[in-house]
Design a protein around this nucleic acid. Structure first.
Lengths: 142, 142
DNA sequence: TTCTATGCAAAAATTTTGCAATCGT
DNA sequence: ACGATTGCAAAATTTTTGCATAGAA
């Protein structure tokens, strides 16, 4: 997504277009994985050209979350919260218990099941949350 | 589960049977829902008869997790990690967001899917965790 | 220009740790 | 009695906040 497109997206949501917000949004949309605020901070604080404070990262993630651009993921990495782009399409992940690598899963295995469950139990289902843990191919070889 | 049964369970896992561990295990198995360390602490620190320190709660949860009795849930409540009993029989629940009623689900909707996922990605899948939220029939009528 | 966002430093909140006292076997 | 567990206080870590400055509309 181009810088101009992101700017438009921000405008449509009433988010002021700042350099830091551009950078974080762009980064998250490319990352496509739950990531901690600190990881984001590390990426940018190392670069000479960008000014980026950890507080700012937290504040921007908070803003994005409130505006629905980002969501706090259920996954914690070393005790830190993680965030990810809020794909309009519902998505799940696998987490490697050894290296904490996160892999998105294509599609949702509960598609269809939810409506079946709702009908058979009378529950009005609002959302679900699925976490799959395992060992990734790399760590299996070690 | 009786105090004696819990004691046996501890013994079988090499966990020393202390008063605090009994209390926490008993509480968690009845609670049957993700809960924060602080919530557990609050429950017991208010009672005259029990001594229970927040550090102890964290340490016990850590011990239980390592021994497989408890698992850290993916869900964070107000920025705090949550923990829940690790049921040996693989089971899922629906939680009513209005009255917190919990309804077990028959069967696991991911049966079969896990092996498919493992094969197609090379991940060695260890476990999964599913939470379904909705509004129960009773609360829909209100 | 005006209002908001950022950086910085400090505070608040959560989780972990060291050590002496206590408890369980 | 011995080693493990707990309470307490303090440290470490993560997240939030106040305020002056810089930046966007």
């Amino acid at each position: 997504m181009s810088s101009e497109k992101i700017k438009e997206l921000f405008k449509s949501r009433g988010i002021k277009n700042t350099q830091q917000r551009q950078l974080i949004y762009d980064f998250l949309s490319k990352k496509n994985q739950p990531i901690t605020a600190e990881e984001i901070y590390m990426v940018f604080s190392k670069k000479e050209k960008t000014r980026m404070n950890l507080s700012t990262v937290y504040r921007i993630l908070d803003t994005f979350t409130k505006k629905g651009l980002v969501q706090k993921s259920g996954i914690n990495i070393e005790g830190k919260s993680t965030y990810e782009i809020n794909h309009m399409d519902h998505r799940h992940h696998m987490v490697c218990v050894k290296c904490n690598k996160i892999l998105p899963i294509k599609g949702c295995p509960l598609d269809g099941y939810e409506s079946y469950l709702g009908e058979s139990t009378g529950f009005k289902i609002i959302e679900h949350h699925l976490e799959i843990k395992g060992i990734c191919p790399d760590c299996q070889r070690k």
